[in-house]
Simulated scan of single mutants.
Amino acid sequence: MVNYKNYKVWERSHRLVLSVYGLTKNFPKSEEYNLISQMNRASVSIPTNIAEGCGRETQKEFIRYLYIASGSAHELDYLLLLASDLGYIESETSKTIISEIDEIKKMLASLIKTIKKSIRT
């Protein structure tokens, strides 16, 4: 069992959650149970799945949770694009956060690849 807090990808995804929550505070009240909820849940899902995967017994299980985290990152990527197109956030803000999501996706892919290599050897 590994401490999830030791992973840089967890740390960055946690900071991403804080950014998304700060951003969605300014969305219209009418989006409270729609886009706000969906974006917040997708963002929280990333570090949560990394943490849960660290608590699993096998590396294969950990990889499965990292894939789920990656899926949530892809979902959040789209939701930010949508929020930008709807005019809820500035285009530059959206681009900055999407850039951070892209980095997190790369980090997750790299971690998955590293763990898969260690399983084979």
Results as ranks from 00 to 15, higher is better:
Y33L: 13
G22V: 10
I89G: 03
Y65T: 01
K60D: 04
V9F: 11
T58K: 12
D77C: 04
Y33G: 12
K95M: 11
V20N: 07
N49R: 09
T121A: 14
K106F: 13
Y33M: 10
L80E: 00
N3H: 09
N6W: 08
V9L: 13
I104G: 06
G55A: 06
T48A: 11
E31M: 13
Y4W: 10
N40F: 05
L35W: 07
M107F: 09
K60R: 13
T114G: 08
G55Q: 09
N3W: 07
I89D: 00
N40S: 07
M1R: 09
R120K: 11
I119L: 13
G55C: 05
G55E: 03
I101D: 01
E92I: 03
V9W: 07
C54K: 05
W10Q: 08
S45D: 01
K106I: 09
A109G: 02
L86V: 10
L76T: 00
Y65E: 02
A109H: 15
I98Y: 07
S118W: 05
F27P: 00
N6S: 15
K29C: 07
K60H: 05
L80S: 05
I115M: 12
V20Q: 04
S43P: 00
V9G: 03
L35R: 00
F27V: 06
A69W: 01
V17M: 06
S94Q: 10
R15E: 08
N6M: 13
L81V: 12
V2L: 13
I36N: 01
A69Q: 04
E90K: 02
M107Q: 14
K117Y: 03
I89W: 00
L18D: 05
K95L: 08
G53D: 03
E57H: 09
I119P: 00
K5R: 14
T93H: 04
Y33I: 11
I98L: 12
V2W: 12
K113Y: 04
Y67W: 06
A73D: 00
S94M: 08
E52S: 02
K105Y: 09
C54I: 12
A73M: 08
K5V: 14
V2N: 13
G53I: 14
R120A: 12
K113N: 10
N34E: 11
K5M: 12
P28E: 01
K116W: 02
E100R: 15
E75I: 07
R64S: 08
V2E: 10
